[in-house]
């Protein structure tokens, strides 16, 4: 089936909503198993880490400016700086580095 805009919109929005809604609405039990509790505690950090690495190093289209932004984000995150500060400082660092005549 060839995609027109309406089909494309539906094909994106409907599966995305259903995959969010069904487990969130249907799941009512308290999880008792220690393994399951641990798993659900760790999974968000696993997803974030898998999405960030190695993608962060390609995020600016230049590995050196990305590395520079990454180091700034790493240090500020370890210092527990607010999220907006970390994000803007990393972008600024990548931008300033890209201005250097290297």
């Amino acid at each position: 089936m060839k995609l027109n805009f309406l089909l494309c919109l539906l094909g994106m929005a409907v599966p995305t909503y259903l995959i969010r809604m069904i487990p969130f609405t249907a799941f009512r039990k308290k999880i008792k198993s220690r393994f399951a509790k641990s798993f659900f505690y760790y999974i968000p950090y696993a997803v974030l880490a898998a999405m960030t690495f190695p993608a962060v190093f390609y995020s600016t289209g230049n590995i050196w400016t990305a590395l520079c932004g990454f180091c700034v984000a790493l240090v500020l995150s370890l210092l527990s700086a607010p999220m907006t500060v970390v994000a803007l400082a990393a972008s600024l660092a990548a931008y300033l580095f890209s201005l250097l005549p290297l």
Binding site: M51, S59, T60, A66, F70, L88, A90, S91
Partner: peptide, 14 residues
């Protein structure tokens, strides 16, 4: 290009 790193910096700060 530099704005491309925003989302990943956010992930790191989380």
């Amino acid at each position: 290009a530099a704005l491309g790193i925003l989302i990943y910096a956010m992930f790191l700060s989380i």
